[in-house]
Amino acid sequence: MEQTVALDHLYEGCKANDPRAQEMLYRKLASGMLGVCMRYVRTTAEAEDVLQAGFIKVFTQIESFRGEGSFEGWIRRVMINTAIETYRKNGRSVQVMELSEVTDAPQEAAVIDALACEDLLAMIRLLPDGYRAVFNLYAIEGYSHKEIAELLEISEGASKSQLSRARNWLKERIKQIKAYESR
């Protein structure tokens, strides 16, 4: 509750173009937003570029926040959209893969719990571009396939296909780690 109130105050300050409020908002949210950005790009330097561009958008387009949902959620969406834009500007396109038979691998919860966040992040960042965007948007951010299709300009079927492929790819890697650790 205290954080919500503080964010509301910071929102008002940022809306009034107050540099102190802007810096305080950045100090409060930069680290968590960098974690979001790092899942969408391959390197930390790229993620920091996205974070920088995202915060500039937040401060210059703050009028477009209409109070629907939380302010932090809006900032998170701005960061994700900026990451997708960067992804497009770099000439990368979401590869549409044909839907193949998806075999459900056994649950790897124990292995995932044993993994450090950095290792899991490294695995996600190794995903092909299209897989990574769809997996992040659907599995972690909670977007629907329809929203993903609009955002990435692909079909819903392609979004589902990419998600399945990404899951299988990650499960395969986790299985390899498990096999390596059991030796």
Binding site: I56, I112, D113, L121
Partner: peptide, 27 residues
């Protein structure tokens, strides 16, 4: 999906350190 949920829970609290000079660039 349980697999998605496990990864989401794991990544929820991931807060890496930000470079010191980034705010100056934003300013």
């Amino acid at each position: 999906n349980p697999f998605d949920r496990h990864i989401r829970d794991k990544m929820k609290n991931f807060t890496p350190d930000v470079s010191a000079g980034l705010w100056d660039k934003i300013e």
